[in-house]
Design a protein around this nucleic acid. Structure first.
Length: 145
DNA sequence: TTTCTCACA
DNA sequence: TGTGAGGA
């Protein structure tokens, strides 16, 4: 079945890149990119076309999940051995370290964004004050005729 | 339909 | 982190 909804039955044999892309809901370019970055393994058939095992669909889903956390492809490549056999990561010291480090980096980015927000807020307050002052002066001038 | 590479956002 | 183009 090829309804493009991702509800097809699980493939029983190797897939080519187009079928994996459709099942995983990503572009073929993305799959080649993941392979280039060492995130995804592909075999080759006689004509050089990539072939993928049926579980590559879940592998792509795991990669997408990890990318969505903000981890880069190098970190994900190192983490993938800890991400086998189901959702989430094994609680090994390596994966814990990577996750902790990523959270620390996010905390730093959040702090920096909050600093920028506060700086912009100061500008905004000055602008509001000036505007209120200008309006008050204009009202006074109007009353004075 | 697939492969690849280069340039680009 | 991806995408587009262009040729094989």
């Amino acid at each position: 079945m090829a309804d493009g909804t991702g509800t097809d039955p699980r493939p029983t044999g190797p897939m080519r890149i187009g079928e994996l892309a459709r099942r995983a809901g990503v572009s073929t370019r993305v799959l080649r990119y993941y392979e280039q970055r060492g995130l995804l393994c592909a075999g080759r058939d006689a004509n050089g076309y990539r072939t993928y095992d049926p579980d590559a669909v879940e592998a792509v889903a795991r990669i997408r999940e990890l990318l969505a956390t903000g981890l880069n492809t190098d970190s994900i490549r190192d983490l993938l051995p800890c991400a086998q056999g189901g959702p989430g990561l094994m609680s090994c010291s390596f994966s814990c370290g990577v996750v902790e480090q990523q959270m620390a980096q996010l905390d730093a980015e959040i702090a920096e964004l909050q600093r920028r927000r506060a700086a912009l807020g100061a500008y905004a307050q000055v602008m509001r004050d000036r505007r209120a002052q200008d309006e008050a002066l204009a009202a006074m001038a109007l009353r004075a005729g």
